[in-house]
C-alpha cells in the first residue's frame, strides 16, 4: 500500500493518514506478538543453545566446564554401545506403538462412523484414555502388570501364556511390551479422532453410488474409504512416529529404562544423561543426532510420497 503513494503523486492525498495506516498494518503483529515472543525466547533460543551445547563440554557438576570441544561428543557417541541399543529399542518401541495405535484407531473410527444408539457416550468413554495424564497412564499400567495388586499377570498365567504370574516389566525379554501396551491404550483415541474426522468428510453419496454399481462392503472400503483416508493416514502416521520416538514419559515412569537397559530409548537416554548425570553437553549431542534422524525420516517419507504421486 505504501508504494502507491510513491507511484502517483496526485493520489497522495487519497492515502489514509499515516497514523491510521500504521495502526492498520501493525494490528496482526500486535495480536500475535505475545505468543511469538514467548515461543522465540522459551523454545527457539534454547533450541539454538541446545545445538551449541552439543559441541561444548557442559557438565553441571564440573564448575570449569563450558569450553568448545568440537566433535568430541559425537566421537564418544559413535563408540557408545548404550546409544546403539537405545536406537534399536527406539525402532522397536516406535514401530509397534504406531502400528498398533493405527490399526486399533482405524477400527475404532470405522465402528464409530455410523450413528447408533448411545454413540455420543461411547465416544466420550473410549476417548477418555487420551485425557489421562501420561505419567498416570504409565503408573496405572505398571500397577496392572504388578502381580501384587494387578490382575494381568494372573490372567496371563491362567491362560497359559506365562508359566508363572510374574511382572513382565522386570523380564528383560518382555519388558518393552509393557510401555508399548500402555502407549497403545493411551494413543488409540488420537488416531481414532483424526481418522473419524476424515471418515466423516467422505461424501456419503459416493458409497451410495458404489453400492448401486454393485460394490460390496469390502470393495467399498478398498475403493472409496482407503483412498480418501490415505492422505490423513500418511500425515498422521508421520507426525505420530516423530512424536512417539520423542515420547519418554511412559518409559521413565514404568521401567526407567530397565531392566538392564532393555527399554531405554534414545529420548529417555537423553533425559538420563541430562537429569541423572547432569552432562548437558553429551545429552544435547544425542538429542541433535535424534533430531537429524527424525528429519531424515520425515524427508524420506515426503520424497516417497512425491514419488508415489508422480508414478500415478
Amino acid at each position: 500500500m505504501a508504494s502507491l503513494a510513491a507511484r502517483n503523486g496526485g493520489s497522495q492525498r487519497d492515502q489514509r493518514p499515516l497514523k491510521k495506516r500504521l495502526a492498520d498494518a501493525s494490528a496482526p503483529y500486535l495480536y500475535s506478538a505475545p505468543a511469538l515472543i514467548l515461543i522465540v525466547t522459551v523454545m527457539l533460543v534454547p533450541l539454538v543453545l541446545g545445538i551449541s551445547y552439543a559441541f561444548r563440554d557442559i557438565q553441571l557438576l564440573k564448575p570449569f566446564s563450558g569450553g568448545f570441544i568440537g566433535l568430541d561428543h559425537f566421537r564418544t557417541l559413535s563408540q557408545d554401545q548404550n546409544f546403539y541399543r537405545a536406537l534399536r529399542n527406539t525402532l522397536w518401541w516406535t514401530g509397534w506403538s504406531v502400528l498398533l495405535q493405527f490399526v486399533f484407531g482405524l477400527i475404532l473410527a470405522l465402528l464409530l462412523d455410523k450413528p447408533f444408539f448411545g454413540r455420543a457416550i461411547v465416544q466420550a468413554l473410549v476417548f477418555l484414555p487420551w485425557a489421562v495424564p501420561s505419567f498416570l497412564a504409565g503408573l496405572n499400567w505398571a500397577w496392572l502388570f504388578n502381580p501384587v495388586v494387578g490382575p494381568l499377570p494372573h490372567w496371563l498365567f491362567a491362560l497359559g501364556i506365562m508359566s508363572e504370574p510374574n511382572n513382565i516389566l522386570s523380564d528383560p525379554q518382555l519388558a518393552m511390551w509393557g510401555p508399548i501396551i500402555a502407549n497403545v491404550w493411551w494413543g488409540i483415541p488420537f488416531f481414532a479422532i483424526t481418522l473419524l474426522a476424515a471418515l466423516q468428510a467422505i461424501p456419503r453419496d459416493l458409497y451410495e453410488a458404489a453400492s448401486i454399481d454393485g460394490a460390496g462392503p469390502v470393495k467399498r472400503f478398498l475403493s472409496i474409504t482407503l483412498p480418501f483416508l490415505a492422505p490423513t493416514i500418511a500425515i498422521t502416521v508421520l507426525l505420530r512416529t516423530v512424536w512417539i520416538s520423542n515420547f519418554a514419559d511412559l518409559i521413565i515412569v514404568m521401567t526407567n529404562g530397565g531392566p538392564a537397559d532393555r527399554t531405554q530409548i534414545v529420548a529417555s537416554y537423553i533425559f538420563t544423561q541430562a537429569f541423572k548425570r547432569l552432562d548437558f553437553g553429551y545429552a544435547s549431542a544425542i538429542a541433535l543426532v535424534l533430531l537429524a534422524l527424525l528429519i531424515i525420516y520425515s524427508m524420506l517419507i515426503v520424497v516417497l510420497r512425491q514419488w508415489l504421486l508422480s508414478k500415478d
Partner: peptide, 17 residues
C-alpha cells in the same frame, strides 16, 4: 475494502479514510 485509488463521497463528504 480499502480504496486503491479514486474518491468516494457520501453526502458531499469524502469517506475514503
Amino acid at each position: 475494502e480499502a480504496v486503491t485509488d479514486g474518491e468516494i463521497r457520501i453526502a458531499g463528504k469524502r469517506v475514503n479514510d
